[in-house]
Design a protein around this nucleic acid. Sequence first.
DNA 1: CTATCTGCAAATAATTTGCATGTAC
DNA 2: GTACATGCAAATTATTTGCAGATAG
Lengths: 128, 128
Amino acid sequence: MENKRNTEQKRVILSALMNADHPTASELYEIIRRNNPHLSRATVFRVLGQFADDGTVRRLNLTGSDTRFDARTAPHAHCHCDVCGKIFDVFEGPFAPVLQISDVEGFRVSSAQIEFTGVCPECQTKLN
Amino acid sequence: MENKRNTEQKRVILSALMNADHPTASELYEIIRRNNPHLSRATVFRVLGQFADDGTVRRLNLTGSDTRFDARTAPHAHCHCDVCGKIFDVFEGPFAPVLQISDVEGFRVSSAQIEFTGVCPECQTKLN
DNA sequence: CTATCTGCAAATAATTTGCATGTAC
DNA sequence: GTACATGCAAATTATTTGCAGATAG
């Protein structure tokens, strides 16, 4: 029922998301707006929601309350820096197998999210 | 600077949270309200925020956008059922070591969150 | 053509804040 | 006594929705 037509707006939104760093819907809207003043905020929310529902993008619920979006759909974890606020994608590591778990005590798992909170290498350096 | 005084409201809020199931601030407010009609919604938000900041409770960013709170501070993962919406705490499992990771590619980890999304055992039974 | 989409503005819902009063220490 | 806490209502902010006009297929 969702996301049936290929529109200019959808192309612009997806392309902007691929070039952005885990933005919220509003942040992405502000970016898009510079080159597409007519594309509305409601459309950004609507289209991101559709994309998330049909698996084109991932919806992230990270520290900081606002929902963020990620165009990278391959399983990966996120590292959220408390200092600079940046979010890093991490595809490999000892946690990787957890992203593949399909059963937890009888609970049938369809997807897993891992978020690490802390301080990124760059901010560690600055703090010294 | 935060959470300096031990007030009746803080005691009521913490006690209600310990008996509730990962509620949002508003959900907890509705519960508390039944027995404490004078305790205000703003106080619930304010106190939960302080408790989260000083480590008394955990702030959860799970699927569903609204921030939830958890009085269980020991490291554990969450399983979120897509069908009934219930959230289950899971303390043991192959993912447990991930909750102890302190370094991810140079990123200094202070805390980790793991959320599994899927269908709980009870809902699996109902679906058959 | 016509079912979908979009833009706009108004509506919701969550969370925060200002400020006067209350109270823990 | 005084700094901190609370209640209330108003303010903000994020997100959703209704609807009329635009457009993909």
